[in-house]
């Protein structure tokens, strides 16, 4: 093993930098210019981009309405996959599940139709959600079921991926290093491998519902 490593490294070390002098620096550049957007415009961009990717976006008028919305999306299902309630920013949810006898299942159960998660951030420029792994945050909840429901706070919406990465630096990279995996989700699972036809729900969820809670609702 060592041998292969040393061989490869010595071949690379033996060389001078292969490309000679490189002009130009690594200045910060946003892939989509977002700096001029107001906070409200940033939220609007998130909604617009998420919908372009075939996600459904809801902004309920109150916490009660948010819970009604979740119940509607659940329909007759009485078992769901879910993140732990502490990671979902909708305080009444646990009680509502109890009242309606809805059980949270954690197994790799194929028959569960809906998975519920929060998010660790949302990105306006591309309509994406950032989900980090950790205790009480199963990866499978946003992967195995046909329907993924993400409940987020409006103040979790950042301008773009560049901004999220900057916040990781601000927090010190150690926090990020202690996370096994980060997943940036942009819309429902899709494929175009059959004659370039857009097909949703190839392996992951075919529906992504994003519920945005405004600060006054919490």
């Amino acid at each position: 093993m060592r041998k292969n490593r040393d061989e490869i490294m010595s071949r690379l070390d033996a060389a001078h930098p292969p490309l000679g002098a490189i002009e130009g620096g690594l200045e910060r550049l946003s892939v989509v210019p977002m700096e001029h957007l107001s906070p409200q415009q940033t939220v609007d961009r998130f909604k617009e981009q998420a919908r372009l990717l075939s996600s459904s976006v809801y902004v309920p008028a109150s916490a009660d309405e948010a819970i009604r919305l979740v119940m509607d999306l659940l329909g007759d299902d009485n078992r769901v996959m879910s993140w732990a309630f502490e990671h979902i920013p909708l305080p009444g949810l646990e009680a509502a599940f109890r009242t309606n006898s809805i059980r949270v299942v954690s197994a790799r159960d194929e028959t569960i139709r809906v998975g519920i998660t929060g998010a660790d951030a949302a990105l306006a420029s591309t309509g994406s959600l950032v989900l980090l792994t950790g205790e009480g945050k199963p990866r499978l909840a946003s992967l195995l079921p046909k329907v993924h429901m993400a409940i987020i706070r409006q103040d979790q919406i950042l301008a773009d991926l560049e901004t999220w990465v900057a916040t990781l630096h601000e927090q010190g990279l150690d926090a990020f290093q202690n996370t096994a995996s980060a997943m940036i989700i942009s819309g429902p699972s899709r494929t175009a491998d059959i004659a370039m036809q857009l097909i949703l729900g190839m392996h992951g969820p075919g529906e992504l519902h994003i519920i945005i809670l405004e600060p006054t609702h919490l």
Binding site: F176, I185, G204
Partner: peptide
């Protein structure tokens, strides 16, 4: 696409 559907990072 502006982003792939899934951008994974594994530490």
């Amino acid at each position: 696409q502006s982003m792939p559907v899934y951008t994974h990072m594994y530490n």
